[in-house]
Design a protein around this nucleic acid. Structure first.
Length: 808
RNA sequence: GCGAAAGUGGCGGAAUUGGCAGACGCACCAGACUUAGGAUCUGGCGGGGAAACCCAUGAGGGUUCGAGUCCCUCCUUUCGCACCA
C-alpha cells in the first residue's frame, strides 16, 4: 500500500524523507514529531497523485550497542536487531506509512559492503588516505572523534567528557578537496533554512589572505605566516608562534628555560581548550630573544611564542600588527611592544583615528614604496611582489579539516585495508568484499580496537605478495553509513552495485528532507560531500542530495529538553496506549508550528482525543444519511442556507489546508481549521437532525472531512471512510479540491474606524466597491453618533478590508 | 564579543500582503443531562469599569488615516560561532 510505483507510472515523483533513527530500543517524542510531519506530507502527496517514496531504515552501527554488550553480555548484533524489531512495532502502532520493502539496515553486510566499496574507490582517487595526526580522543568512547563530533571541547555523545588530543595514525577522507564547492553550493540551496546554511558556511570557514615568509636571524629556516591583512605588514612589530610550531621546538633544543616556559603555555592552551573557552584565555607570551626579518622592509622584529596562536589554523604563526588588530593591540600593550600606524584615512584632512584602527578603508603610510595605495590595492600589489620574489603568495585558508573516519571500535564497518610488511598498505580486492565483521568476539573498552584481538580476522594473506599480512582493525565512523543511505533506498536489494544510477536519477534529489537541526554540520555536510564524490565517480548526476530541508523544533516538557536525568521523559508507547496513535500524532502537529520548539502538555493530547471522539460520533451519526445519497444528485440546487454555509466552510477549510501543504507548513493551524469545521457542522446539529441539509451535501461534507483528516489521523480516517461507504483505501482517494465559487462569502464584515480607532463593524456584500462601503459606514448608527457635529476630513476605504474616517 | 531567531491572556499558540488582537486547544467558571462522571452537550473566559467606554502584543521612540506586523534605541530568552590571524 505504501510502496513507490515504477518510474513508468506516469505520475510525478516525490521523495519525502525523515532522518533515520539510531535503534536505541525505543522511539522518543522527538521521533514522533519528526515522523508525524513526514508522514502527513507523504500521505498528502500520495492523495495529490504523486508517486511517493517514503522509506525508513536504521542507522544501526555505533557505540551504544557495544556498551549494551558490556553491560548485559548481549552481542551487539542481537541487541541491535531486537531494538529494531521493537521500534518497528512502535512505528506500526503509530500508523507510520513507510515502505518497509526498501528498508535499509546499515549494520547488514549487504549495506556496509558498499561502504567498503566506496572506501576503495576513494582510496584509488586519493580521497581516502592515512596520516599521523593530532586527533580528538574521547576516553568514554575509547575512540577517536571527527572534528565535527567535538562540541566545545567535549564529546558529542558525552557532554561531560573532555576530549583529549592524541597523536595517532588514522584514515581520513579528503572532504577539504570539496571545501570550495561545498561552500558555493550553499548559495543555491534556497530550499534550506538560512540557519543551517550559515552554520555550514561558518564551519567551512573560508578566509582569503596571503602567506608570507619571514626570515629568521642567523638561521636558514623561514617563518611562514598567514594574514588577511597583508596591507598592514609594515606595521608588524613582532612575530608570534604557536607553542607547537616546529621552529619553537628547534629553538628550545638549546634553551632549557624556553622549553620550560613553552610547556607552560601549551598547558594553558590545553586547559582553555578543555574548559571549552579558548576564546577567553588570558593572552600570554614569551620572547624567544631571536628576531624575524620582514621580507618587504628588511626590518628585524622579535619572535615570540604565544598561547593564543593555534597550531592547527593557518600556518601556526602570525605577524602581530598592534596598530590595526584588536587582539595584537591588547597583546602589545601588555608587553610594551611598539604600536605603529600604517593605515591612514583616505581623506588627508581628516583627523587620524585612534589606534587600533581596524577598518580596511584607508591608504598606506609608513610603508615604504607602497605608501598612498588603498588597502585593497596594496593587498594585491604586495601579493604580486611576494610571488615574484618568491617569499609568499595569495592563499585561501579553510577552517574545515579532512574527515577522520577511523574508529578503534568493533561495531562498525571494517575498513577494507591490509597492512603488509613488504607491500605496505594494500586495499582488499573488490571481489573479496565485504570484509565481514566477525561475530562472537570479546568486547572491551580498553586497549584499542576489539577487532585487533581476533586472530582469524587480523591475520590474512597479502593480496599482492601472498605473504602473511595484517588486516586494518579500525572501523568506519558511523556517519559514513548515513552519508549515502538515502540513495540505497531507491534500490535497496541491489547485489551488484550500491544502487542503479538510472533509478537514482529518477528519484533524486530528495524533494523534502526532515530532521533535527543538530545534524546541521555533521550528517548534512558529510552527505553533501559524499554526493559530490559519487558524482565525480560517474555514478550520479545531481550535485546536491537534498532540494528542500526542514528542521523541526525540539520537543520539550516543562520548559526543558526531555531527558532521563530531568525525569521529564514522556513515552510514546504510553501516549498511544492512553490517548491513541492519532491523538499523539495530531497533538504533535497541533501544539506548535513544526519549526518551533513544542511544549508537551498531556492535557493537550487529551483534548485532541476528545476532538477525535467528537468527529467519530458526528460522522457515524450521519453516515446512514450519506450512504443514502444518490451518486450524481445535485448538491446545491435544493440546498438551504445551512447547507450552503457548511459547504462554504468546507471549501474554505480545504483551500487553507491545501495551501499550507504547499509551503507554509503551519500544520497547527491546519488542525485548528479542521476543528473549526467540525465545530460548525456540529453547531448545526439540530438542522442536520431535522433533515434540512440534503443527503448529497452531507455526503460531500463528511467524506471531505475524512479526507482532510487522513494525513493527520490516519487510523480514524480509514475507519470513518469505511463507515461512509467509501470505496478503496483513503490514501487512494484524490485530495479534495476547493471550489472557489462555493468557498466565497457573499457578505463580509468590515471594521469601521474613526481616526484609526475601531468603532463598529458593518456588513456589506462581498466585492462591494469603495463607494458602497463608505455609504454603509456613514449610515451605521454608532458611526453617525460619533461624527455628528464634526468635520469629515478624509475617508480611507480599503476594498474588502476596512473603512477609516478621519474627523476633526 | 559576533551572528540568527524569538518575546502576544493563567498555559500552548492564532492573526499570508500594515486593516475587527487573542482563531483553535488546554486550564478554569457556570448551566444542562445524569444514580454517578475525570463522559457528553450549552454558555462564559486579556485587564479596568455599573455602563458608556478606556487600556493592552517585552520597554521607549518614530513612520502611517491605521502598527503585534515596518524603522530606530534598549531589555530578556534561546540557538549558532568565537583569540580563525
Amino acid at each position: 500500500m505504501y510502496a513507490a510505483e515504477p518510474h513508468s507510472c506516469g505520475k510525478p515523483k516525490y521523495y519525502v524523507l525523515e532522518m533515520l533513527p539510531y535503534p536505541s530500543g525505543a522511539l522518543h517524542m522527538g521521533h514522533v514529531r519528526n515522523y508525524s510531519i513526514g508522514d502527513a506530507l507523504a500521505r498528502h502527496m500520495w492523495m495529490r497523485g504523486y508517486n511517493v517514496m517514503h522509506p525508513m531504515g536504521w542507522d544501526a552501527f555505533g557505540l551504544p550497542a557495544e556498551n549494551a554488550a558490556l553491560k548485559n553480555n548481549t552481542p551487539p548484533r542481537e541487541w541491535t536487531l531486537s531494538n529494531i524489531a521493537a521500534m518497528k512495532r512502535q512505528f506500526d502502532r503509530l500508523g507510520m506509512g513507510f515502505d518497509w520493502a526498501t528498508e535499509v539496515t546499515t549494520c547488514f553486510p549487504d549495506y556496509y559492503k558498499w561502504n567498503q566499496w566506496f572506501f576503495l574507490r576513494m582510496f584509488e582517487k586519493d580521497l581516502a588516505y592515512r596520516k599521523k595526526s593530532k586527533v580528538n580522543w574521547c576516553p568514554e568512547c575509547a575512540t577517536v572523534l571527527a572534528n565535527e563530533q567535538v562540541i566545545d571541547g567535549r564529546c558529542w555523545r558525552h557532554e561531560d567528557t573532555i576530549v583529549e588530543q592524541r597523536d595517532l595514525v588514522q584514515w581520513f577522507l579528503r572532504i577539504t578537496a570539496y571545501a570550495q564547492e561545498l561552500l558555493d553550493g550553499l548559495d543555491k540551496l534556497d530550499g534550506w533554512p538560512e540557519k543551517v546554511r550559515t552554520m555550514q558556511r561558518n564551519w567551512i570557514g573560508r578566509s582569503e589572505g596571503t602567506e608570507v615568509d619571514f626570515g629568521v636571524e642567523n638561521r636558514s629556516e623561514k617563518i611562514r605566516v598567514f594574514t588577511t591583512r597583508v596591507d598592514t605588514i609594515f606595521g608588524a612589530t613582532s612575530v608570534q608562534l604557536a607553542p607547537e610550531h616546529p621552529l619553537v621546538k628547534s629553538l628550545a633544543e638549546d634553551d632549557g628555560g624556553l622549553r620550560e616556559q613553552v610547556a607552560k603555555l601549551l598547558d594553558e592552551q590545553k586547559k582553555a581548550r578543555e574548559a571549552g573557552d579558548i576564546g577567553e584565555i588570558e593572552k600570554h607570551g614569551i620572547p624567544t630573544g631571536k628576531f624575524a626579518i620582514n621580507p618587504y622592509s628588511g626590518e628585524m622584529v622579535p619572535i615570540w611564542v604565544a598561547n593564543y596562536v593555534l597550531s592547527d589554523y593557518g600556518t601556526g604563526a602570525i605577524m602581530s600588527v598592534p596598530g590595526h588588530d584588536a587582539r595584537d593591540f591588547e597583546f602589545a600593550k601588555k608587553y610594551a611592544i611598539p604600536v605603529r600606524r600604517v593605515i591612514a584615512p583616505s581623506d588627508p584632512s581628516a583627523e587620524e583615528p585612534e589606534l587600533p584602527y581596524l577598518s580596511e578603508d584607508g591608504v598606506l603610510v609608513n610603508s615604504g614604496e607602497f605608501n598612498g595605495l588603498s588597502c585593497h590595492d596594496a593587498q594585491k600589489r604586495l601579493q604580486e611582489v611576494a610571488a615574484s620574489k618568491n617569499f609568499g603568495e595569495a592563499t585561501v585558508t579553510f577552517r574545515l579539516k579532512d574527515w577522520g573516519v577511523s574508529r578503534q571500535r568493533y561495531w562498525g564497518t571494517p575498513i577494507p585495508m591490509i597492512h603488509c610488511e613488504r607491500d605496505g598498505i594494500v586495499p582488499v580486492p573488490y571481489d573479496q568484499l565485504p570484509v565481514l565483521l566477525p561475530e562472537k568476539i570479546e568486547i572491551t573498552q580498553q586497549g584499542g580496537s576489539p577487532l585487533a584481538r581476533v586472530p582469524d580476522f587480523v591475520n590474512v594473506t597479502c593480496p599482492k605478495c601472498k605473504g602473511p599480512a595484517k588486516r586494518e582493525t579500525d572501523t568506519m565512523d558511523t556517519f559514513v553509513d548515513s552519508s549515502w543511505y538515502f540513495y540505497r533506498y531507491t534500490d535497496a536489494k541491489n547485489a551488484v552495485a550500491p544502487f542503479n544510477s538510472a533509478t537514482v536519477q529518477y528519484w533524486f534529489p530528495i524533494d523534502q528532507y526532515i530532521g533535527g537541526v543538530e545534524h546541521a554540520i555533521l550528517h548534512l555536510i558529510y552527505s553533501r560531500f559524499w554526493t559530490k564524490v559519487m558524482r565525480d565517480l560517474g555514478m550520479i548526476t545531481n550535485d546536491e542530495p537534498v532540494k528542500r530541508l526542514f528542521t523541526q523544533g525540539m520537543v520539550i516538557k516543562d520548559g526543558a529538553k526531555m531527558s532521563k536525568s530531568k525525569g521529564n521523559v514522556v513515552s510514546p508507547d504510553d501516549m498511544v496506549a492512553r490517548y491513541g496513535a492519532d491523538a499523539a500524532r495530531m497533538y504533535a502537529l497541533f501544539a506548535a508550528p513544526p519549526d518551533r520548539d513544542l511544549d508537551w502538555q498531556e492535557d493537550g493530547v487529551a483534548g485532541v482525543t476528545r476532538f477525535l471522539g467528537r468527529v467519530w460520533r458526528l460522522v457515524t451519526k450521519y453516515a446512514p444519511v450519506c450512504r443514502s445519497a444518490v451518486r450524481g444528485q445535485s448538491k446545491t440546487q435544493d440546498s438551504g442556507a445551512v447547507a450552503l454555509r457548511l459547504l462554504r466552510k468546507l471549501h474554505q477549510t480545504t483551500a487553507k489546508i491545501t495551501q499550507d501543504f504547499e509551503g507554509r507548513w503551519h500544520f497547527n493551524t491546519c488542525v485548528a481549521a479542521i476543528m473549526e469545521l467540525v465545530n460548525e457542522i456540529q453547531g448545526a446539529d439540530a438542522q442536520l437532525a431535522a433533515g434540512e441539509v440534503p443527503a448529497p451535501v452531507m455526503h460531500e461534507l463528511l467524506q471531505t472531512l475524512v479526507l482532510l483528516l487522513a494525513p493527520f489521523a490516519p487510523y480514524l480516517a480509514a475507519e470513518l471512510w469505511e463507515e461512509l461507504g467509501g470505496e478503496g483505501a483513503v490514501l487512494r482517494q484524490p485530495w479534495p479540491k476547493s471550489d472557489p465559487e462555493l468557498a466565497k462569502e457573499d457578505e463580509i464584515e468590515i471594521p469601521v474606524q474613526i481616526n484609526g480607532k475601531l468603532v463598529s463593524v458593518i456588513r456589506v456584500p462581498a466585492g462591494s466597491d469603495s463607494k458602497v462601503m463608505e455609504a454603509a459606514a456613514l449610515e451605521e448608527e454608532k458611526v453617525k453618533a460619533r461624527i455628528a457635529g464634526k468635520t469629515l476630513a478624509k475617508v480611507i476605504v480599503v476594498p474588502g478590508r476596512a473603512v477609516n474616517l478621519v474627523v476633526r
